[in-house]
């Protein structure tokens, strides 16, 4: 069965002062209705670029999509006309952004902004759009929706603004919701509320969610499946239990080890926080081998010369690493556990 949103072998390049740089290199992933796919990785690994490429919003003129396909409901969005993309954006595929403080237009009321989307895509009259907007504000649990609909963004707190953004994204009942670090700018308690809200909406409406984050905690809480990205490439992909429980790629293991542990009391030792040595290499300096080779504790000569293929079969747990035995069914990390 074809997935609702299927990205295959996506390649995006950017013109920079150092020449043309490949920021996405053969990324493939898929999301089904009612499923949450987590995309994790460090800053600059291509998470947000993947989201923008899905929406057809790769910044021009510097960025170019040079290959692959983005199939949504069977239609290749990369080949679609701009006018078709405008119909899809906000209507079928919606997006919420990292910064709720700046993602709303300060000179219009939040009601106007949510209603704008509804009128644009659903052809509602002003009155219909308004009642639909109130309905949405209630759905995202904004108290006194009838009054607050006429307020301006600066009258809302960060968490409330993110709710407004979610209401705006969901007003046309999109099939896919891309959440680009939706809680990074928010308090921990508010984060939990936003995640609850997203889960509720996914369960009641069957929306497919693509959750982009660098927070493994958010992944553990929200995601059904996870894609780990590194330097514009997919490092590992699999069900959330497998990724968190038996990570196969050294980079995923590194990411998990970096998390601070919340254990106090008897027997708890405060260990120094682990880190992955080095930084993501500049993309134009990537060699022909594995992108993670320079920082990997298990690096071999082969890693520097040849790019590892995706390994693992059947279970949906895939990783790109030479350490994994290419003849076995599952990645090595899984067996080792």
């Amino acid at each position: 069965m074809a997935a609702l949103l299927e990205i295959e072998n996506l390649k995006v390049e950017f013109d920079t002062w150092d020449g043309r740089v490949r920021v996405l290199d053969g990324v493939s992933l898929a999301v089904n209705a009612g499923e949450t796919l987590g995309i994790v990785g460090e800053s600059g690994c291509g998470k947000s670029m993947t989201a923008l490429a899905i929406m057809g919003l790769v910044p021009k003129p510097a960025g170019h999509v040079t290959g692959g396909s983005v199939r949504f409901d069977g239609e290749d969005l990369l080949k679609a006309a701009e006018s078709r993309l405008r119909e899809v954006r906000g209507h079928r595929i919606a997006m919420i952004f990292q910064e709720p403080m700046t993602s709303l237009n300060p000179v219009f009321t939040i009601g106007d902004q949510i209603a704008e989307t509804a009128r644009l895509h659903l052809g509602l009259t002003a009155a219909q759009a308004r009642s639909r907007t109130i309905e949405m504000l209630k759905a995202v649990h904004i108290p006194e929706a009838e009054r607050r609909i006429d307020e301006y963004p600066h009258q809302f707190s960060g968490g409330m603004r993110q709710r407004v953004m979610i209401a705006m994204a969901l007003v046309c009942e999109p099939q896919v919701l891309i959440a680009d670090e939706p809680t990074t700018a928010l308090d921990v308690t508010v984060q939990a509320q936003i995640f609850d809200l997203l889960q509720e909406l996914r369960d009641t409406r069957g929306t497919a969610i693509v959750l982009i984050t660098h927070d493994m905690g958010a992944i553990a809480e929200m995601a059904d499946r996870v894609v780990v990205m590194y330097a514009g490439r997919k490092a590992e992909e699999g069900p959330v239990e497998a990724i968190l429980g038996q990570p196969a790629h050294p980079y995923t293991r590194g990411l998990l080890a970096c998390r601070p542990q919340l254990q106090l009391g008897k027997g708890a030792v405060r260990k120094a926080l682990q880190e992955i040595p080095g930084v993501v290499p500049p993309l134009h300096l990537l060699g022909k081998g594995c992108a993670f080779a320079e920082r990997c504790p298990h690096v071999t000569a082969r890693c520097r010369d040849e790019r590892p293929p995706e390994t693992g079969a059947g279970t949906g747990h895939l990783a790109s690493c030479w350490l994994l035995d290419t003849t076995s069914d599952a990645p090595k990390g899984r067996q080792a556990a």
Partner: peptide, 13 residues
Amino acid sequence: LEYVRAARAIGSS
């Protein structure tokens, strides 16, 4: 600014 990106993401021309 982000709200211009957001406007594009809801399909504004």
